[in-house]
Write a protein that binds this DNA or RNA. Structure first.
Lengths: 186, 186
DNA sequence: GTCTATAACGGGATAGAC
DNA sequence: GTCTATCCCGTTATAGAC
């Protein structure tokens, strides 16, 4: 790739932020065009079916991010506690310490809930499974691990909503600490 | 009020569900017109500034609902535990056991985050204060009570997102039980 | 108060040149 | 691949009759 040519990955990374901040209906082609620096027609070159295709691309990007930042480290070296810390650090960067919303939450809350039901379910489940397996590795019984993983996702999502609503990153930071404390506790 | 005349409260209750399910950008005048049975022009009679006015009316409705279902019972008779159960029952009905989204979450996640920042903050804070005061009444130290109240809101919001994403009311039901267990625990 | 009609605008999407 | 130009439609909003 050269300096003047955008890769698809770069384009997807840019539209990702728009859908995250505006939701599906709120993300207009004008803003998507502006944020990517591409004309509307060029966007249709990348995404023939428009916004719907863009969101599918975002789900793919999320899957890749999860693989790189959660699943791979999970199978790497270190204690479960170390791996959890690394994961939490990655989430902290993704959400910018609570200043960014969660694109999954934005799509659930907006009109995309029915449109992307299958993908949303798969994304949440993959997330939960990753956290669950880490808890299992730390010696937590499977059933309990599943519950704790769901709790962690609930806390992330809820804390991002509350941090957004209050304009205060405190709830997110505290949720992150609670997850670190609770997920693997014996 | 007669059978043929809608009160403003009835109209607001109907548009409430549209914004809750569709978000601010996703709620169109066509759907609002359909759900209320009023023509678009009639909606402008009730809400001269359009959708923005409708959302302000929703915040007012929420404030009243909170007063009736949370604040009043709080100052009524019964043990804190009994009052908490009554509050949780009211929330369970509002969210239809996890099948409904939270309108505050929908407004935070959509484009309304900046537009209604003041009202969102006030709504979340009122909610937290109500839960906090109940915990204080039950003998929880003030600081700890504040944290638990924020946790409860985080759990509600996150559980509604996850229940929506998974299409399964399980997370909401479990969050409700956890709040009942944790908020007042000594 | 509610309606019909319509204005004014912006949205998503396409065609075709380069 | 990206652009300009354009289309069609839905959306917000207003005017005025009843």
């Amino acid at each position: 790739m050269s300096a003047t040519t955008k890769t698809r990955a770069e384009v997807v990374a840019q539209i990702f932020t728009v859908f995250r901040d505006r939701g599906f209906e709120g993300a207009t082609l004008s803003e998507l065009s502006q944020s990517t620096g591409l004309g509307k027609s060029s966007l249709y070159h990348y995404f023939p079916n428009g916004k719907e295709d863009m969101v599918f691309a975002i789900f793919t990007l999320l899957g890749q991010w999860m693989k790189d930042n959660v699943l791979e480290p999970l199978h790497g070296v270190g204690t479960p506690k170390q791996k959890l810390r690394a994961m939490l650090h990655a989430f902290d960067e993704l959400y910018d310490g609570g200043r960014n919303a969660c694109v999954l939450g934005a799509l659930v809350s907006g009109g995309g809930r029915m449109r992307f039901q299958t993908e949303l379910k798969a994304s949440f489940e993959a997330w939960i499974i990753a956290l669950r397996d880490l808890a299992i590795e730390a010696g937590v019984p499977r059933r309990e691990a599943q519950q704790r993983a769901e709790d962690a996702v609930v806390r992330f999502e809820g804390a991002l909503i509350l941090s957004g609503g209050l304009g205060d990153s405190g709830p997110f930071k505290r949720a992150s600490r609670q997850i670190e404390r609770d997920l693997l506790a014996v």
